[in-house]
Design a binder for these strands. Structure first.
Lengths: 225, 225
DNA sequence: CAGAATCTAATCCATAAGGAGTATAGCTTT
DNA sequence: AAAGCTATACTCCTTATGGATTAGATTCTG
């Protein structure tokens, strides 16, 4: 079984070279290529489920929508997809922003040379995001030079009894907050959208609110998530 | 010309195995071995200058004086020496502390397997500190999970670069997230509800979402508030 | 066993929201 | 002066949401 890969780069020749490198490895299938962030997101929407890439190799500087924004939105819309930055830029801000945006790995084009495929495969075996040695070193130095500091925050205890919601209601609440519609929630839980709606109305009553947005606020305020 | 290496580990067999591995590479000369931090510092004092190690492989948990303290003192006394942690511990606190103490690299005993010598040699060619993939991944996650934050350039940068929204759009976004309807937002800003709607649609396009709930989720995730 | 929750599902209705398009005025940039 | 962006505002249409009510099935509980 092979792994679906997406490639986002504004230079067509880069895409092709990379694609050939990956195909040569014969573990990988390139199911999506795009020239920038917008292009990528649009193509993701239209893509068949079984072709959804498990890994997206993302360049950073691109016209239209850059890689950081694409990763931000992409990692939100497709949490299962691992975004790996593949770029020539190694300045600290770019690294930091990309990581914050949700990048799972960060590879340098020149450093990684021919073994991008190897590093991606290693990622599958270890579960750890692939990072070029030079980048790892930069991050380490950022920590050393006090540009990064450890902020202790021991996640407040999750409130177990959130307004006496039933298990089902909690389940639905979670999906509701994620932005799903009645119908979509129903599909996930294998029940009717009408039923979901009924549950949601019950939730509203218990929480004394009357819209999804209010629910989200309340949930966030109470550190439900 | 070969490179002088120091090995600090409380387990004698570890020292020997490691030593043999390095000697097998024949780039390296092991000129110092020690069983703990204190032992290491004492031997460094007595060592001939030409035998001073360029690299010290340092275990972390040792009786007497541990690796972190040894690195702290050692990197102060011998700034030219590169301290590379070589341990089985991969918990975040240990990693962070070791790096802060001045570690130039961080290798995991099990992960690095036989190629510790390779990674050390690579360090010489690239000038970058050797870091095990698993450790790099851990650090990356620490950054991602806000346990590490950029201190010199705080919150402002994150907020300002929220998807290139215009001032007006940001203004409307805030009210939108509060749960107001188009009409209500319009009333607050003294513009038409229709106009608000147009702005909101523009925001959706820029953020690549298509509902208020998704916007809120994204905004919260990216710490817009 | 009987009653109480709970989960399921449906209907009807009014309103809000999402989508797409058009248009104009003001301001900045080239 | 022309091109581009932003803010403003409108229309038409479809779909989703919130609100209220009813009701069968299942499970829990006193």
């Amino acid at each position: 079984m092979s792994v679906n890969i997406g490639i986002v780069d504004d230079v067509a020749s880069n895409r092709n070279i990379l694609k050939n490198k990956l195909l040569g490895h014969n573990h990988f299938e390139v199911t999506l290529t795009a020239a920038n962030g917008k292009d990528f997101l649009k193509k993701m929407q239209l893509l068949d489920l079984e072709l959804l890439p498990a890994v997206v190799l993302m360049d950073l500087e691109m016209p239209g929508m850059d890689g950081v924004d694409a990763i931000t939105t992409g990692s939100f819309l497709y949490p299962a997809v691992k975004f790996v930055v593949l770029t020539i830029f190694d300045d600290e801000d770019k690294i930091f922003n990309a990581i914050k945006a949700g990048a799972f790995g960060y590879l340098l084009k020149d450093e990684s040379g021919e073994n991008i495929a190897d590093m991606l495969w290693q990622m599958y075996e270890s579960g750890a995001g692939p990072i070029s040695p030079g980048i790892a070193h930069k991050i380490l130095q950022m920590v050393q030079h006090n540009e990064l500091t450890l902020t202790h925050k021991p996640e407040a205890a999750v409130q177990k009894t959130f307004f006496n919601l039933t298990e089902r209601e909690n389940e639905i609440l979670e999906l509701l907050v994620e932005g799903l519609m009645y119908r979509e929630i129903g599909a996930r839980l294998f029940i009717s959208g009408n039923t979901v709606k009924k549950h949601v109305m019950n939730i509203y009553n218990k929480l004394h609110v009357n819209s999804r947005i209010q629910v989200i606020h309340l949930a966030h305020k109470k550190k439900f998530f």
